[in-house]
């Protein structure tokens, strides 16, 4: 398996790779609009893992883990889903006014071990880990990974019910509403890991449309002790935000949690 294929498969599984590889492949959900008016409007959403934001140039996002939550906190159907060569696409109808969260949540496990002096690797679902490794495996190092790729859309007036964190993995708790972003105003968010403030975490914020620019703008900010970070948008546009937290659980297994959001910042 070539390095590229390996990266692609890992990205599809939602498995966090070494930082260098993870940077090259960015997961995203790109909605056709984030601020809508009128009765029961629709959004169409593209999902992909690509090198250039937000152009589908690598592999599609698999739709298995994509879910939407409505303004009342209840699940909302993903409709007309299709997966192509480079991207997936689906529709969401905003049947009642308020804010919807669309998220691709994935979990996986990765293990490296030695068998007969040879280093081997395994990756798959967390539930399969117990039976997947050979009995004579030694030097087993397990990494549990979780990843959320999110975006937000609002019909009419925004509300916050759908934004409530689930307390699992790395999550964004908006202080500024994610569908109330304009270029002239700073935005504040809190990063949570398993429901607790994620302090000192670097957040990368990148503007889409890089194909038509030399570079950037790209921002890096670090969360404070309370997990809060602030963003001053250099310009309006569709922005991509990512953070990763590495750690270990009590058993010594590694944990890697990733969070990605696509945020639309409108001009004044």
């Amino acid at each position: 398996m070539s390095a590229l294929r390996f990266a692609a498969v890992a990205a599809l599984l939602g498995v966090a790779l070494a930082p260098a590889a993870a940077q090259a492949h960015r997961s995203w959900l790109a909605p056709s609009a984030t601020v809508l008016s009128g009765a029961q409007p629709w959004v169409t959403v593209d999902g992909a893992v690509s090198n250039t934001l937000f152009y589908a140039d690598h592999v599609p996002m698999r739709l298995d883990g994509v879910k939407a939550v409505g303004p009342d906190g209840a699940p909302v159907a993903i409709q007309n889903g299709a997966t192509g060569k480079y991207r997936s696409t689906f529709d969401v109808q905003l049947a009642s006014p308020g804010t919807y969260k669309i998220a691709n949540v994935s979990e996986g496990a990765m293990a490296s071990y030695k068998q007969g002096g040879e280093t081997k690797r395994w990756r798959g679902a967390v539930g399969q880990l117990a039976t997947a490794l050979p009995k004579d495996a030694t030097d087993v190092q397990v990494t549990y990974s979780s990843r959320r790729v999110e975006t937000f859309v609002t019909a009419g007036a925004p509300n916050t019910t759908a934004l409530k964190p689930e307390g699992k993995g790395l999550e964004l708790e908006p202080i500024t509403h994610p569908n109330d972003l304009v270029a002239s105003e700073k935005a504040r968010f809190r990063l949570l890991t398993d429901g607790k403030p994620a302090a000192g975490v670097e957040v990368e914020i990148v503007l889409g449309g890089v194909r038509y620019r030399e570079k950037g703008p790209e921002l890096k900010v670090t969360t404070g002790a309370d997990g809060v970070f602030e963003v001053s948008w250099p310009e309006a546009g569709l922005w991509w935000l990512e953070a990763t937290v590495q750690g270990a659980d009590a058993s010594g297994a590694r944990k890697s949690s990733g969070y990605v959001a696509t945020l639309e910042v409108l001009p004044d």
């Binding site: 601020v35 008016s37 009419g156 007036a157 925004p158 304009v182 409108l266 004044d268």
Partner: peptide, 10 residues
């Protein structure tokens, strides 16, 4: 956009 954000959406 400005009217929508400030007044229209509510």
């Amino acid at each position: 956009r400005q009217w929508w954000r400030k007044a229209g959406r509510t």
